[in-house]
């Protein structure tokens, strides 16, 4: 299978899963913004995306994307380290034009993954998970499973969480600024003219996505979701 036994095939898998995750982030960000305008509307979305069959199928698909992206990331990194050989340069300089993010995607990805673990603990473990457990017949408290705003307020009233989330978003921004154009480049959708265009589009897009997330964190941290 060329998607696993050729270098371009492996990168195509990274690109396609990466782009799909960017699409997911866009929807997630758009839904989060609702929490600023209307708490009721946001809770309606939470109900809609609770433990319904379509939301569960989508969650499983999303989980698969994340897992594939991560497995391939470690696999590619291991191969690349081997390809570099055992001896390292005594002196190395960063050539100009090389983005810092592009050479640190794995580290940034690990930070994003740690943030994701925190995020699942803060929200998913209190919303979709208890609902699923309840459906399976276990005794869990399901009073607040669709009250998303309650969990947002709970989490971001704690400054430690808010700062951790902002650090997480910063790492995500760096990861996306390289990932966006790099994915399109790997899929072959690039040339000398489009190179700068994709980079610019990628930078603007990742900035919009990350700012959208950050605004919700700041709004609920600094004014507890009540100032307007």
């Amino acid at each position: 299978m060329w998607l696993s036994n050729s270098s371009i095939g492996r990168k195509v898998v990274m690109s396609v899963t990466g782009l799909a995750l960017i699409l997911f982030l866009t929807f997630h960000m758009a839904m989060n913004l609702v929490a600023i305008f209307s708490a009721d509307a946001y809770n309606m979305i939470c109900e809609f995306l609770g433990a319904n069959w379509y939301a569960l199928v989508a969650t499983a698909g999303l989980g698969a994307l994340v897992v594939i992206h991560i497995i391939y990331a470690f696999w590619l990194t291991m191969q690349n380290r081997a390809a570099r050989g055992s001896e390292r340069y005594a002196v190395s300089a960063k050539p100009k034009g090389v983005e810092w993010a592009s050479q640190n995607m794995l580290v940034l990805g690990i930070i994003v993954l740690l943030g994701l673990a925190l995020h699942l603990f803060n929200f998913w473990a209190k919303m979709q998970l208890p609902e699923v457990l309840h459906m399976l017949g276990m005794h869990v408290d399901t009073a607040n499973v669709t009250n998303g705003v309650y969990h947002i307020q709970n989490t971001f009233s704690c400054p430690v969480y808010s700062i951790l989330y902002l650090v997480w978003l910063a790492a995500l921004w760096f990861h996306l600024t390289h990932g966006f154009w790099s994915a399109l480049h790997t899929l072959g959708w690039n040339n000398k003219i489009w190179f700068e265009r994709w980079r610019m589009i990628g930078n603007i897009y990742s900035t919009i996505v990350v700012l959208g997330f950050a605004v919700v964190v700041l709004y609920y941290w600094l004014c507890g979701g009540s100032c307007c």
Partner: peptide, 21 residues
């Protein structure tokens, strides 16, 4: 490309160091 992979060269991650150097 198959020969390149077979000979143990790595997977490109578009860092652009090659182009710069």
């Amino acid at each position: 490309l198959a020969k390149m992979d077979e000979l143990g060269f790595g997977n490109c991650t578009n860092t652009r160091a090659c182009e710069a150097e």
